[in-house]
Design a binder for these strands. Structure first.
Lengths: 202, 202
DNA sequence: GTATAAAGTGGCACTGAGTGCCATGTCAAC
DNA sequence: GTTGACATGGCACTCAGTGCCACTTTATAC
């Protein structure tokens, strides 16, 4: 039924609203249920936990990421796949109406943040699988896929952080900036360019 | 007092033992308190939460990381700092007696895993600060520092994952392998993506 | 329209996490 | 032995999350 989704959305909207108004910790599940015109018991039929509410957008974020990887033209090199994936996911998230509000809640409440971070870690597994398919075409082993998945999420995390704290509008340029930074860092030479130094750094 | 640390260690040991035996979710704080010969109320004076127990080793992990960054010889390039940092942190963690046991618990119980992941995210902030100091010397801006911090943790995560699932003993070679993968991946031009040969070692 | 199965809802009671409060115990100083 | 600082543990409370069950709604069959 479509009514299911409606109830779900109603609860979610009410919750985010309350989190923004009262704070995450200060809002009880009862508060949310009442605000959404339902019961505490029903709340837990739609969401696994209070924290789960904060992780909802990560699901679509993850789907958007895996989708971007798979939709990349076959001719793309792996770094190009990474760049395009970052770009699409960043724009997808930036376009969600509640994104900034949710980021603000996450920034303010550790418990809310934890829920998001944990879900992102789950997404990483799916990304690695999507990249693994790519690697079969472009060359690269399972390790490459996992590195790419980790890279995607950590670079996007930096991207969002920069975008959010700078209050910028254009997230695409932030993506470019971050991507260029990694390339410069791991590819070119930055600063003192001595490559190998005797071991034992202590 | 040193006795404080003793009680703390006793509780922690008892907890990890119980998690390994009964499972994380199945172990209550009461169980832990009794096993450690103390009370539930005292438990919460030593640890913020049950999950906090799983995050204890992340604290020393984070300290080890920041330490490695700062101890790196001044002549090192940023990628070299990254490589050495990864290596030291990996070896530090691999040397902890309980590391594999804790990884097993984390692998099995989402709630336990979440606690660790959340703490790692906190560590990232400290790493970025340590890298920022480096960047003042080696060149590179604040963004570079944050990218490096994210890179460090995500690459180490892949490293531990590989090391853990493969049941390898030598984590240093795993670090080299992961590091080489990123260099190969991001080092070349966007079009081709093939570059230097992975350098074995350790 | 009525009967009925299936699914959704909400109340109730329970366990467990985490916290505030306070009485008690311990240990050192005087 | 008294005093003060501090650690401890018990008690009671709130809130998250779950199992159970009665009730209501909806869909389907006759």
């Amino acid at each position: 039924m479509r009514k299911q989704q409606l109830v779900r959305d109603t609860i979610w909207d009410a919750a985010i609203q309350l989190f923004a108004e009262k704070g995450f910790d200060e809002t009880t599940v009862d508060d949310i249920a009442v605000a959404a015109g339902t019961s505490r018991r029903s709340f837990f039929r739609y969401f696994q936990s209070k924290s789960d509410l904060m992780a909802q957008d990560i699901v679509s974020y993850g789907a958007s990421l895996a989708d971007a990887i798979r939709r990349c033209p076959p001719g793309c090199s792996l770094p190009e796949v990474l760049r395009r994936t970052m770009l699409q996911a960043a724009q997808h998230s930036a376009a969600q109406p509640r994104t900034r509000q949710i980021m603000e809640i996450a920034a303010q409440y550790p418990a809310a943040r934890e829920a998001q971070i944990a879900r992102v870690a789950e997404v990483q597994e799916h990304l690695a699988a999507a990249y693994a398919e790519r690697c079969r075409v472009n060359g690269g082993n399972d390790l490459t896929a996992h590195v790419l998945a980790g890279l995607t999420l950590s670079l996007l995390s930096v991207t969002f952080r920069t975008w959010f704290t700078n209050g910028q509008n254009d997230i695409a340029s932030t993506v470019d900036q971050v991507f260029a930074t990694v390339q410069q860092l791991m590819g070119g030479r930055v600063g003192a360019g001595r490559r190998s130094v005797p071991r034992g750094g202590g």
